[in-house]
């Protein structure tokens, strides 16, 4: 028996080896751009990372030093406004389509619309916020930027939370109903706690997407040379600062653009780590 299987076994092992090498090779190729970008940003931007980056404003052309205080906090503020709008809306939408509207026409339409929304180019989201917020209030503002970002964030939150809700077995809902809970108690106290990891994932993914967006902010949040001046005033953001300074002829501003890129990456990393930490316990 043993020798009968030996040739097949060798061939199989050879095939397995080739395929493994192929997969590892493809992984490495896919990793090259990622690592190259990270390294490049780290080398060019990491060197200047000090406390001044978070405490000082960008200097005028030809002046040395300075920091990104306005853009850093501006990004945090627009992201916060974006999340404040998109996270509750996204979670409630997902709850509707999965828990209450399952199979109804309305839910199908809502789901179709979120899918379309997730394919909308980000500049269109900016135009939308420009039309809805900037034109009606008559000024560029952090709120307008947040609205633009929320348009991009909503479909991501909806989709991840929907996935989470669908992964919860129906038996769990029956159990909750079975001890006399009503629909609201079932959703809010049994189902939602169980999908917390998915909510955190959705929020992280949407934040990561929004943190790097420039186009929707260009004509909504605009930019500001100064510190935070209220939610209804224009505000600087890291991505717009990168856009402005990267094409500037002054070396100090170019350096600050690299630092800003590095800070954006760190910010996304930080958000991911925090959300992982908060949701370590997986449920199912």
């Amino acid at each position: 028996m043993a020798e009968m299987y030996a040739p097949a076994d060798a061939r199989r092992r050879f095939f397995g080896g080739v395929m493994t090498a192929l997969v590892v090779g493809c992984t490495l190729i896919a990793l090259i751009p990622l690592i190259a970008i990270l390294l490049n940003v780290f080398i060019k931007g990491g060197g200047r990372l000090d406390t001044a980056v978070f405490t000082e404003l960008p200097p005028p052309p030809l002046v040395k030093g300075g920091g990104l205080r306005n853009a850093f906090f501006g990004t945090l503020i627009t992201l916060s406004i974006g999340s404040l709008l998109s996270v509750p809306l996204g979670i409630l939408t997902a709850i509707y389509t999965v828990e209450f509207g399952q199979g109804t026409k309305a839910a199908t339409i809502v789901r179709f619309c979120t899918n379309v929304l997730s394919g909308v180019p980000s500049i269109i989201a900016g135009l939308f916020a420009y039309g809805v917020v900037v034109l009606t209030t008559g000024k560029f503002s952090a709120v307008a930027g947040g609205v633009a970002l929320s348009v991009l964030m909503v479909p991501i939150v909806v989709r991840t939370v929907e996935e989470g809700l669908k992964s919860i077995p129906r038996e769990i809902r029956l159990a909750s109903i079975g001890v006399g809970a009503n629909d609201f108690q079932t959703v809010s106290r049994v189902v939602l706690p169980a999908v917390l990891p998915f909510i955190a994932t959705g929020v992280t993914l949407s934040l990561a997407r929004a943190a790097g967006e420039t186009a929707p902010l260009l004509f909504t949040a605009l930019f500001s040379q100064f510190g935070f001046n209220g939610a209804w005033a224009p505000v600087a953001t890291l991505s717009v600062l990168i856009y402005n300074f990267a094409i500037s002829p002054y070396q100090n501003q170019q350096e600050l653009a690299w630092v800003a890129s590095f800070v954006v990456i760190l910010l996304i990393l930080f958000i991911s780590i925090v959300s992982r930490y908060l949701t370590r316990r997986t449920v199912f």
């Binding site: 919860i168 077995p169 038996e171 769990i172 029956l174 159990a175 909750s176 079975g178 001890v179 006399g180 809970a181 108690q185 106290r189 049994v190 706690p193 169980a194 449920v283 199912f284």
Partner: peptide, 24 residues
Amino acid sequence: GMVFQKPNPFPKSIYNNIAFGARI
């Protein structure tokens, strides 16, 4: 009340599995 054919505890602590129903 009902006990189902397939065990279906809540994704909660053992304590809260019991306390949930009583609380609501």
